[in-house]
Amino acid sequence: MSSDHAAHAPSSAPNAPHALRFVLHVWRQKNAQSTGEFATFHLDDVSPDMSFLEMLDVLNERLIAAGDDPIAFDHDCREGICGACSLTINGQPHGFERETTTCQTHMRRFEDGATLYIEPFRANAFPIVKDLVVDRSAFDRIIAAGGFVSARTGSAPDANALPVPKGDADRAMDAAACIGCGACVASCKNASAMLFVSAKVAHLSLLPQGQAERGRRVLSMVERMDAEGFGNCTNESECEAACPKGISVANIARLNREYLRALATES
């Protein structure tokens, strides 16, 4: 289906003075088993105020009206907090804008007339479900392997009842900003999940509630990560640059530290 759809069916708004034009090459793939390919769409009335996903919504409405299969893509909150949106724009997860999810990226940020390649996150550990939707349940299984605190921590204690040094609290908060979108895996040339796992491990290992399971947690999570088929980290920091939440690779240094420490001390 190497189609070249002219998806400029009459839109409700007449060409507004600021309408933008784009050529989209969108990855279409029926399911995990089939081989996909790019389909090309020409859009010439994109509002600069649209978000990237709204642009895809409009395209999909036209595809549906024309009796075609709409493009499947993941999304949920559309406000940059859930991590569901997951595609790559011109080879970059969530597009070129730093610390911005796809859903928060607006069409005015792209050059008028630009050609955009829209692909799913690519990694063996994230099999394609359909079109731009990938199965990221490998992350869930890593969390299930130990990314939690199993002790009952009760209701919120009084402030300062559990002293946490300011630096640790800040680092834990920064790590906890990870929304688990998988952009780190998608951007890494090794499809490594180290940034995600490191954010979760750092978050819990820095806080008092995380101490009891600290060693076992890191060993189990890394074991699961490897079993899922993610690659090894080669310290090139592409993940940090792609992360919509700006999670630092300092967390990976901490993960490595935690792992080697657990290796030496856990029985």
Partner: peptide, 8 residues
């Protein structure tokens, strides 16, 4: 990927 762009 069809297109690869490094930025790290």
């Amino acid at each position: 990927y069809a297109l690869e762009r490094d930025r790290g």
